[in-house]
């Protein structure tokens, strides 16, 4: 009887644990579009501290002197890290200025998205809202610097607006038909914007509009969002069965005014490049 109780207690606990693990590793990351549950950048001295604790030394007394003499201070390291990030971003931006196409510069610190060409800023707009997937923040410092060191090249893009909204017109047969078909030009209507841009090195940039979307456009955009979510869920489920998850897709989602989003998307070429400042 006691054994039976023990069995069911252990089984229930394990089921609960399994449910918790499933929720934290698969369900929540998909719901929150964060592939990793928690973001934290491990700094060098934290690693040193952990190592000292593991080796049984009394930290900080035993290791403090060593750290002080051989390692720079926390402020030094973080300022060096920030400086290296800025340097790499400027390097990437400068390298793009030698090319002949328009590129995008996303400054996630000052929340500014700008189009540039040959080092000349063409169009700048404020990022109204911003979401950075925590997998990016969790990258080890040096890895993040390396990741940002080169411009990101656009692989493909899915959007609700056309890059060039061409309209076809058949030439009139004669002047009478030409006069009949003449219509006064009107201000073009701007379609609602939802853009998903997939860059090399696995980065996904989502551009959405600040203005509220209503009507059939909302349905169209929602179905597009759902199709991406479905893909992520499938990936997560597949990873459980095959024990082989595809590379994490870090995601950056920015919200811009509809007009700015349209200007940005239409100005960028098909194989456009982007520099990130973060």
């Amino acid at each position: 009887m006691a054994k039976k109780h023990l069995f069911w207690t252990i089984t229930s606990l394990l089921i609960l644990l399994a449910a918790y693990v499933l929720t934290t590793t698969v369900i929540m990351p998909v719901v929150k579009t964060n592939p990793l549950p928690e973001a934290k950048t491990v700094r060098v001295e934290e690693k040193k501290e952990t190592n000292a604790k593991k080796s049984g030394k009394d930290f900080p007394k035993a290791a403090a002197a060593e750290i002080e003499s051989t390692y720079p201070g926390k402020d030094d390291l973080s300022s060096l890290f920030e400086l290296r990030k800025s340097e790499m971003m400027l390097r990437a931006r400068y390298s793009l200025s030698s090319e002949d196409s328009i590129y995008l510069v996303l400054d996630l610190i000052d929340k500014v998205a700008s189009l540039e060409m040959k080092g000349v800023p063409l169009h700048q707009c404020k990022i109204v809202d911003l979401f950075v997937s925590n997998s990016i923040q969790k990258f080890h410092t040096e890895t993040l610097i390396r990741w940002l060191a080169q411009p990101f090249v656009l692989k493909n893009a899915v959007s609700t607006i056309a890059r060039v909204p061409f309209v076809e017109k058949i030439a009139p047969k004669d002047t009478i038909e030409a006069n009949k078909s003449e219509v006064l030009p009107a201000t073009p209507k701007l379609d609602d914007v939802y853009i998903v841009m997939n860059f090399e090195r696995n980065l996904q940039l989502i551009i959405q509009q600040e203005e509220k979307i209503e009507g059939p456009e909302k349905l169209r955009i929602d179905s597009l969002k759902w199709s991406f979510k479905k893909k992520e869920i499938n990936k997560s489920i597949k990873s459980l069965t095959t024990f082989n998850r595809e590379a994490i897709v870090p995601q950056i989602a920015i919200t811009l005014k509809k007009l700015d989003a349209t200007v940005l998307f239409r100005a960028l070429p098909y194989k456009s490049k982007m520099v990130l400042k973060m």
Binding site: P35, F139, S239, N244, R245, A247
Partner: peptide
């Protein structure tokens, strides 16, 4: 799950190839 799901792995996993 602990071994194979990304949540328990280093954030830099699969970053090296990039």
């Amino acid at each position: 799950m602990i071994i194979y799901t990304p949540a328990f792995q280093n954030g830099a996993y699969k970053m090296k190839s990039w």
